[in-house]
């Protein structure tokens, strides 16, 4: 693999059951491409948390993953309500999720912190009423 490979997924905002399918597929692709288990796990967990966020907060969105030998970039974009206070949203335990979402096992306020924890860089670009774009990069040690 010498050139960047791109994968594109539409994340269905209406279906909690299918949330995470894109992350499962990326995990399989990265395994086929021969990345180490540690890199695969970090990418797939970060993307999975992002996917769940898009479903529970933003009514879905799109995920693009760019894979090259040195790094893996994940871009998640939605047209949801946006994040009003990003630094607050980054605090472990802070959540605006509903009780329904919590009863499904999410909304513990760990999603964004987990995404940051497992990636080497994460940028959040969010505008209220317009949506949110999150760019995460995992570097691959050579």
């Amino acid at each position: 693999m010498s050139e960047t490979i791109q994968f594109h997924y539409d994340v269905d905002g209406e279906n909690f059951t299918s949330a995470g399918e894109a992350s499962v597929q990326i995990k399989q692709k990265l395994r086929q491409l021969g990345f180490t288990p540690d890199i695969i796990r970090r990418v797939s967990i970060a993307m999975y948390e992002g996917e769940i966020n898009m479903v529970i907060h933003a009514g879905g969105g799109v995920a693009d993953v760019f894979v090259d030998p040195e790094s893996i970039k994940i871009i998640l974009e939605d047209h949801g309500p946006g994040i009003s206070d990003i630094s607050l949203a980054m605090q472990e335990g802070f959540s605006t999720a509903t009780d329904t979402v919590r009863s499904l096992g999410f909304g513990a306020g760990m999603g964004l912190p987990n995404m940051k924890r497992y990636t080497d860089s994460m940028e959040i670009d969010s505008e209220l009423g317009k949506g949110t774009k999150i760019t995460m990069v995992v570097n691959v040690p050579i």
Binding site: F16, T17, G20, V24, K27, R41, I45, G105, F106
Partner: peptide
């Protein structure tokens, strides 16, 4: 876990 939905399976998949 006492949680029963498909995301439990996905979480286990993500964590190997």
């Amino acid at each position: 876990t006492g949680l029963v939905n498909s995301q439990v399976i996905r979480t286990a998949q993500m964590m190997d």
